[in-house]
Design a protein around this nucleic acid. Structure first.
Lengths: 329, 329
DNA sequence: TTGATTTGATTAAACGTTTAATCATATTTG
DNA sequence: CAAATATGATTAAACGTTTAATCAAATCAA
């Protein structure tokens, strides 16, 4: 069952492919109504579907965008992917995605890969040390939007949240019962979102003793356990997790060590997780505006795709604190 | 910064585009080493990247596969997507995905959409009433593999799990302390995976009184609450959830109604969820072999893509029961 | 009636590749 | 030394579209 092309329709209708193209493309052109009808009927009959590859080659547009996230299996990113997918579909765009695993090398491979596939633009959650990749895209005049994180020294279009302020707000709540020591578990990641979360933590806890433990991306379980043990030795009375993955790993350890939350230690976390609500002491968390993040990123990208010389801008959306029992001593 | 094409390299190297194509494509051909070197150097210098769109148009292959899941934001599917993505990348394939939301209409739109984008094949988690779509793909000789569910009456290649047996095993464990009544909450979905889970439940609980409540996909929260209330009225002493989403909604209600698990009611669920482990009485669940499901589906698809007349086959992988406290009375 | 305009459609080139067929030139063979 | 072969490269068509340029015939105006 060969694919039906314009040529097939043209042959059957005894006209040129150009005529068929004009008619099916609804271009303004001079073709008699009779011929139009005939062509449309035949197209319908043969169930003609235009070959987008050929269209893309001609037009230089693929109506495809590349989405690079840290890890599509992380609910935060899969939820954002879902939003972007839905929003893109509204405008006739398809989404191709890839996971960088926070590795600049993988990220570069993905960029090359997707660029060869001629995506019209990128939405990228950048990894550490990927500045050069971003600058490369700029040189190539390839439209893109950075999401979740960005590089302050680079003039790019970004969609992010008020990490510093919201972390500070959450931590202030965490220490409102005046503990003497507080701890934070964050990733070993120098990107702005992480630094801002840490900055907010420090700002809010500057009046008391604070400790920060940072773990790598690889052996989260083991490293978080170690980090937590260090903090327990310091006798922290409150604990702030920089992401949901860290919190879940942390909860596991806390539960296992049978530490009473919030009485012995009050806790709160960034991001959401289904686990938070069912932990015996429901976990306070910072809710990111995922829908907005996805739709804005896509909107800004499409703007750039359609208007190349647009000014770069950074959009900072506001997250919200959801207070539950885990932080109320 | 226009894109560099074979033509640009050819001009600079003062040879024909054909020669450049042969050299960069590493085809066996008769070109002197000197020329080869010159061409390769220029390609490197100009940072030539082949235009995959043009290649695809010529070859009829896009090295792209379409993945249609029920909902990419559901961890079960995003995890599978991740596995498929990684596996596909190994073979130089890209994944384009879409969420059907269990709607045959959306599924059809996605199939059309992806087909126009000339994907080489599909991995589809089919929705109810999409048999015609599947048959259409067969007529079109479009390679595809069905995942998670399939239509027994259609001769297709499928990757699924032993839903009946594993559900039966879990339910048998659930009733080993001889409760008199057991309930199940399932989706209103006539597809085989759901029917088999229900079948396994019935088979295992045939010696006692059993009740089945089925809820729609839309207002899960409200419907699950209603279903649960019905079952509570029947005074069931054990409860089996057909999926993680149903279980999470159910746990919410159970927690709110302050029902003691497992003492008042023993529970177990299909699928995993981060919530299960942190529920005060960790939830027993059926763990699906997600890695295998993804890799096998992709493998079978690539086999079909490369060997069109391959025989259809159904691969049934085995899930495992993970017993925790919630089912031990 | 002649020239200008409108109408309905075709031609041909282009997008960036791939690849069979062909063609000079150089080298080997008998 | 002529014929056969090997070497290094080019030509041209094709994939399925789009679209500017062109063309022939019919209609109109003067």
């Amino acid at each position: 069952m060969k694919k039906v092309s314009l040529k097939d329709i043209a042959k059957k209708a005894e006209v040129s492919t150009a005529t068929v193209s004009y008619v099916l493309g609804n271009k303004k052109c001079r073709v008699s109504e009779a011929t139009k009808e005939r062509i449309r009927a035949i197209a319908q009959e043969l169930n003609y579907q235009p070959n987008q590859i050929a269209q893309s080659l001609k037009s230089g547009k693929t109506y495809t965008i590349g989405l690079i996230v840290a890890d599509i299996s992380n609910p935060f990113f899969s939820n954002i992917a879902r939003v972007i997918e839905d929003e893109a579909a509204k405008f006739g765009y398809t989404v191709i995605f890839g996971s960088s695993d926070e590795s600049a090398e993988k990220s570069w491979k993905l960029i090359q890969f997707l660029k060869n596939r001629q995506v019209d633009g990128f939405i990228i959650v950048p990894t550490e040390n990927s500045e050069a990749q971003i600058e490369y895209l700029q040189e190539q005049k390839m439209p893109f939007v950075l999401l979740d994180r960005y590089f302050p020294q680079l003039n790019t279009t970004n969609v992010a949240i008020n990490n510093f302020e919201i972390a500070s707000e959450m931590v202030k709540d965490l220490i409102k019962t005046s503990p003497k020591k507080i701890g934070m578990i964050a990733y070993k990641n120098s990107l702005i979102h992480m630094e801002d979360r840490i900055g907010g933590f420090q700002e809010a806890s500057k009046s008391i003793e604070s400790f920060i433990e940072r773990v790598g991306f690889n052996a989260i379980e083991a490293e978080v356990e170690l980090a937590l043990e260090n903090l327990l030795q310091k006798k922290v009375e409150a604990l702030f997790f920089a992401t949901n993955s860290l919190a879940v790993a942390g909860l596991r350890v806390l539960q296992q060590k049978n530490i009473k939350i919030p009485n012995e230690i009050a806790i709160a976390s960034f991001d959401e997780s289904e686990a938070f609500e069912f932990f015996y002491s429901p976990v306070s968390y910072i809710q990111q505006p995922i829908n907005q993040m996805g739709t804005r990123a896509l909107q800004l990208l499409l703007n750039k795709v359609n208007t190349p010389e647009l000014q770069e801008k950074t959009e900072i959306l506001t997250a919200e604190c959801v207070f539950r029992k885990s932080s109320q001593r």
